[in-house]
């Protein structure tokens, strides 16, 4: 395993930066282009890159499939949960202003941060789960057939 040394070192360097960039896109989406969909995909790319270089077992040790599968549902539940919370507070479904009735616009901002987090979690989970599903099956082509 000596010969992938450069790839390994560079991947270790990049994965952290990619995750940091994903968080930036996620939480800076209110001020600049970005948001949950983009951040989720970028976050998934970090783990897929790690899996490509270090192997599926390593990345599944970091991020086990059962957690990924839970995350897929958790994001949608978080999004819809914000809407249900708004209803419990006495407003319409997904009327985020109800989170802070004295400052409707602040409530909107809070609500947007939560639902964007939900979007990001679901997209990350789906992308990584699909990658695991593809990479986890025994390939028909051997290494020499390419």
């Amino acid at each position: 395993m000596q010969h992938h040394l450069i790839l390994r070192v560079i991947t270790k360097l990049l994965v952290g930066m990619i995750i940091l960039f994903a968080f930036y896109v996620q939480f800076h989406g209110d001020f600049s282009p970005g948001g949950g969909f983009q951040a989720g995909v970028i976050m998934a790319v970090a783990f897929i890159l790690y899996g490509l270089v270090f192997g599926l077992e390593k990345v599944q040790g970091v991020f086990p499939p059962w957690i990924v599968h839970k995350l897929v549902a958790l994001g949608v539940l978080l999004y819809a949960g914000v809407g249900v919370l708004n209803m419990l507070l006495g407003y319409e479904f997904l009327h985020y202003g109800s989170l802070d009735p004295h400052h409707m616009s602040h409530g909107q901002h809070t609500g947007i941060i939560w639902i964007e987090a939900g979007v990001g979690i679901t997209v990350t989970g789906v992308m990584i789960a699909i990658y695991y599903a593809f990479a986890g099956r025994p390939p028909r082509l051997g290494d020499d057939d390419w």
Partner: peptide
């Protein structure tokens, strides 16, 4: 800086794959 790191790495990966083949 990002391109300065990733560009040569990609070239290395391609050359390495060709050498192995």
């Amino acid at each position: 800086i990002f391109l300065f790191i990733t560009g040569p790495t990609a070239t290395h990966a391609v050359a390495n794959a060709a050498l192995v083949t």
